[in-house]
Design a protein around this nucleic acid. Structure first.
Lengths: 126, 126
DNA sequence: CAGGATCCTATCCGATACTG
DNA sequence: CAGTATCGGATAGGATCCTG
């Protein structure tokens, strides 16, 4: 996805120089925080799911984006993929240890945002 | 940013029905996890920054995207904006309490990913 | 310095159709 | 069922120019 550029920074400007664009972690962060990546990871936290279960869990996602997102996450070793060669075929997805570790902050993030929004609503009703 | 659709779900399929697309928090999550939102928030965690400082901190961001991202974050009350009416003008940005609260999981996420990548590199060198 | 306005391109992403 | 392939519209996002 776009790909980091890995250019080295010249001297004299390391003040606020967090390692943003030129950082290999950029790609993984991009995948994790991508439009659908977030919800795939959060969905898989509760239980392993099959392709169509994921599609139905994440309302509004197209098959294309789901498979694309899953492929990226599998490549990053955040998600595993198991194929049962039956007819019809069954493919199950789940979180790797890394995926579980990484998706934890995601739920925290999500919780904090919804929490706040809920508080806002109550406040508005008063 | 695209905007949630807020369609209500019909009965009979609430199994894995996390509140994804049709959720007001979606918008905020989208802003926070947007391509540049992540880095703006992380950058501001260490200290308040002026516009050009942010631009230089986040390598590769255009002025357009920076101001656009900042505007969204300010609207969500994640970031505050202070204008010093001097010449030349100075505008400073910083995290609100909410922003600090929400960006915390973000750094955790980032740390966990870089951690893992670092471990990978060491492993590869061996 | 901080940005708005404009233009233009790359890509994202959904809809549809097809395959093993 | 679990995808891939292709198309086309929408949007993200960079470059440039301009303003208070």
């Amino acid at each position: 996805m776009a790909g980091g550029m890995h250019f080295k920074r010249a001297e004299g400007e390391q003040r606020y120089d967090v390692f943003h664009t030129d950082c290999p972690a950029r790609d993984v962060v991009d995948h994790v925080t991508s439009r659908w990546g977030v919800w795939v990871l959060i969905s898989l936290r509760s239980t392993d799911l099959r392709f169509y279960e994921l599609r139905e869990s994440i309302r509004g996602i197209s098959e294309k984006m789901l498979s694309q997102t899953l492929r990226a996450l599998v490549e990053d070793d955040l998600v595993w993929r198991r194929v049962e060669p039956t007819t019809p075929p069954q493919v199950t997805y789940g979180l790797t240890e890394f995926g579980r570790h990484v998706s934890e902050p995601l739920t925290l993030l999500f919780d904090r945002i919804t929490e706040r929004l809920a508080a806002r609503d109550v406040e508005a009703d008063a």
